[in-house]
Simulated scan of single mutants.
Amino acid sequence: MRDIDDQEWKAYVTKCTTGEWPVPPGFVSDKNNWLCRAIVGRVLYFIKDVEGALTVLSTFINDVEPDMDDHPDQGMCEAEHFVLSLRDISEIIWKLTKNGDAALQYLDRAFKICRKFPYRFHTEARGDIWYRRLNILAESGRLEQAVAEAEEMVTNEKQESHTPKPIIPDPLYEKVNPYIFYSLRFLAEQKHKKGETAKACMIFAEAYRYFPLSAAGVRDVTKAMETKDWDEQYKAWIFCTTYQYLPWEKQPVVSLRD
């Protein structure tokens, strides 16, 4: 890992441990631990210190690899920390430079880890990484490639899912697949941009068959499907995308000991 000056590091840590959304100091105290740097870098980006985030994330992102056997029952694993760091540095590079190839190299690394890591993530990283990749392809002039890859992903995932299965089987999660959902969401949004709103709505209806839905989610999806006007139905689907009704990957129940 590249070194960070002690005084500079302390300034970054102070930003992360104070303010409106303070992080516990114990999470970010060790500058020689890349996990601490990952948290600091992502928090800096969250609080809109883009320069600081890029500086910190760049010190380790090309020099370390996560332990793929690390999967604690509670808290995020190394793979997830690393994937989220790759996600943020990709987004920073894309926003600053609009260089698709530069941004995609980090998303491609993140995507490979998502596919390889067999255990649960606590965030929506797997599908989100794929969705971001499709959008950057489209926005950097490779829309046809993005559409083709999204369609191929749907076909392949229907044949063999790469979504980790819950430790305890749960009927709510039998068909959940973030790769299919985000591929179909992307395809629906592209149809809408072309003015094909009815087709977009039908694709969204299929997409939500692969989304983890609570009772509130079932209510909102049903409402969208029953909306007759296509423009209004599309708005209803977009409303649904603003809610994560259940975690993408079912988490174990925490039991408290006496």
Rank of each mutant, 00 (worst) to 15 (best):
R185C: 14
V147Y: 06
E249M: 13
W9G: 09
V13I: 10
V43D: 06
V13Y: 07
Y45Q: 13
L107D: 09
I92P: 01
E8S: 10
D67G: 00
A224I: 03
Q145H: 12
M153S: 07
L137E: 10
H81V: 00
A236M: 10
C36I: 08
K223P: 00
Y179N: 04
D101Q: 06
H122T: 14
E232F: 03
V221C: 05
E249R: 07
A198Q: 08
I129F: 15
F211N: 04
V23Y: 02
C36L: 10
K175W: 10
L184V: 08
D88I: 03
A216P: 00
T241G: 00
V56D: 10
Q251N: 13
R37C: 12
D63V: 06
Y208R: 01
I168G: 11
L246W: 08
M76G: 04
D101T: 03
K98Q: 07
T18I: 11
K235C: 00
M76V: 00
D73I: 02
S255V: 06
V147H: 09
D70T: 07
W94K: 01
L57F: 08
F121V: 07
V13H: 05
A125L: 08
R209W: 08
S214C: 10
I89E: 03
L54N: 12
N177H: 12
T197A: 07
Q251D: 14
F211P: 01
E226Y: 02
